[in-house]
Design a protein around this nucleic acid. Sequence first.
DNA 1: TCTGGGGTCCTAGGACCC
DNA 2: TCTGGGGTCCTAGGACCC
Length: 431
Amino acid sequence: MTASRFALADGNNFYVSCERLFNPRLEGRPVVVLSNNDGCVVARSQEVKALGVKMGTPIHHIRALVAKHQIAWFSSNYALYGEISRRMMAVMGQFSPRRETYSIDECFLDLSGMHRAPADIAQELRRRVRSWVGIPTCVGIGESKTLAKLANAIAKKTPSMEGVCDLTALSATARQALLEGRAVADVWGIGRKLGARLESLGVQTADDLRQFDLERARSQFGIVVVRTIEELRGISCADLEERIPAKKQICSSRSFGKYTNDIEEICQAVTEYTARAAEKLRRQNGICAQLQVGLLTNPFKDVPQHHPVGHIRLSVPTADTLRLVSIAVRVTREIWRPGYIYKKAEVMFTDINPATYEQLRLFDEEERRVPAPPSEKRARLMATLDAVNTKWERGTLRVASAGDAQPWQMRRERMTPAYTSSWNELPVART
DNA sequence: TCTGGGGTCCTAGGACCC
DNA sequence: TCTGGGGTCCTAGGACCC
């Protein structure tokens, strides 16, 4: 058996790099991409990081900086980032028979037992993604996923490494020196709270954590931290997850572009969010048995707060948009109260099972009372709805109660075109 | 004026059972 | 009068991730 070699490959400043791909004038300029509703900074170019802007900063906190340094800002364009991500993953997957897509811009690769040195493979991966897709990347390599993540962060911070850090190729001392250079909170799985608690015990760096006593970690922090320590020691505790597991809960929630108390507007928004969640549910061929709706006021404001949540168990699990919408709207009317300004609604489906589950139960004596599943006709309607919205654009076919004016729609003041996923928005060379 | 969205896993505690 | 202990299941809440 050969030692395990995990690589973590990811796009640098991914959303910003996607925007630059279609607008090369942004190269070398400070650029940020904002969250939904143009709220927080979710991607920063190198120039912006150098200005000290932190991830998640509300854009209205840094208006002056934006003006002073002429920071270019964009609304997030997920259709574009999703498509570029698919291309990037396809190319990265060419370098190993085993790949796990970890997030929109990251994947783990299994480089165990390869003929060539992992660092050479990684460099070729970087060249190919850069040239075929146009996105700059970095790669970290280690005996565990946690070490691969850490190596990737080191590669990003150390220009002399040219985008690749292979911890497995280093001597024990060189490796230790690198781990000593990383704060404990930078370790995958150690967040703000755990980081602070560890630091109060004198555990400052990734290497301190690596040397932390396992028994003590078990009793004071629990199994998660124990596994992280093992992984830092090069013992892999988490293998690749090559196939995407079915979701156990599906949520669609969004802040309104314009805060509102109008129950009709709120019901429109809930209708739309429910339809979105139902699409996701059908995509994994699931049905849900519980639905939850929540409304939220703005916690940042000194106004009367209200956060009602209502849930309903469905007597017959379903993925039918029309049924789910009517239930969700009913719940919304029940939990809504006058006198509060709501900023956000969320719709959540839980108790999700494969659609076949429902049919199987029909053969179970105990469950005889379960009514027949929705008609074949209704299922075909849903399939048609999904097909139309896939072929043309999301929202081509909608539930009428989602309304027309939709003043609650999120703000996206500066969204670039769907260059790669809409025929009408393909970039065309001028002649 | 303006503060994202969508997930997972673990743990503790209560209910319940034998 | 004395009033165990272990197992399972569920839920809420916390912590983490990108």
